[in-house]
């Protein structure tokens, strides 16, 4: 039996020397909205992790990665890079291959060593989708795919990335 998702959407995008990541704030059970203040993006230093899916697993997984990233920082005495974070997320989710967390994570960040923007997405068991343009996830992923595919172009500047264009 698969639990129904709590509803939510997340999108990450690459622009000119920048990345953007956005999510909605709703927590609901089907048509009933329980909270309008339930963020789905979590920041771990230079890396931002978006999580959509089952709300309980959004919390569990974000807490788990806060712990893992904090331990990494203590051990390595540096921030985790987006690429390392991607592999950490992937292996952590695959660890639960036969009893997965019901989440579709999205990562956005800038690699502080190379200065290059980085985004990627995952399925619920950790298969990484390295995209050069954008990543969408959540119950509105179809709609986000359509809009992103239609509006995205290389080297968007940051004000356009945040949907503020004229």
């Amino acid at each position: 039996m698969i639990p129904p998702p709590d509803g939510g959407a997340c999108v990450a995008m690459v622009g000119k020397d920048c990345v953007a990541i956005a999510c909605d704030l709703r927590l609901g059970m089907q048509a009933l909205t329980v909270s309008n203040n339930f963020p789905k993006i979590f920041s771990y230093g230079d890396v931002h992790l978006g999580l959509t899916g089952l709300a309980t697993d959004v919390s569990t997984v974000s807490d788990l990665f806060r712990y893992k990233v904090n331990m990494y920082r203590l051990r390595e005495e540096r921030n985790i890079s987006p690429q390392t974070m991607a592999n950490l997320v992937s292996s952590s989710l695959y660890e639960r291959r036969f009893g997965p967390y019901f989440v579709s994570p999205v990562i956005a960040g800038i690699n502080q060593t190379s200065g290059k923007p980085f985004i990627c997405g995952f399925d619920s068991i950790g298969c990484i989708d390295f995209a050069k343009d954008f990543i969408v996830s959540g119950t509105a992923s179809d709609q986000l795919f359509g809009t992103c595919e239609g509006l995205w172009e290389p080297d968007l500047v940051s004000c356009a990335c945040s949907g503020d264009m004229g």
Binding site: I2, P3, Q30, D123, S124, C127
Partner: peptide
């Protein structure tokens, strides 16, 4: 891309009658 979940997650409402909230 081999997870079962995202496919079924977007399926028709009411499919989860047995595991729907409560």
């Amino acid at each position: 891309m081999s997870s079962e979940w995202p496919d079924t997650l977007a399926a028709a409402p009411g499919q989860y009658a047995a595991c729907g909230r409560g």
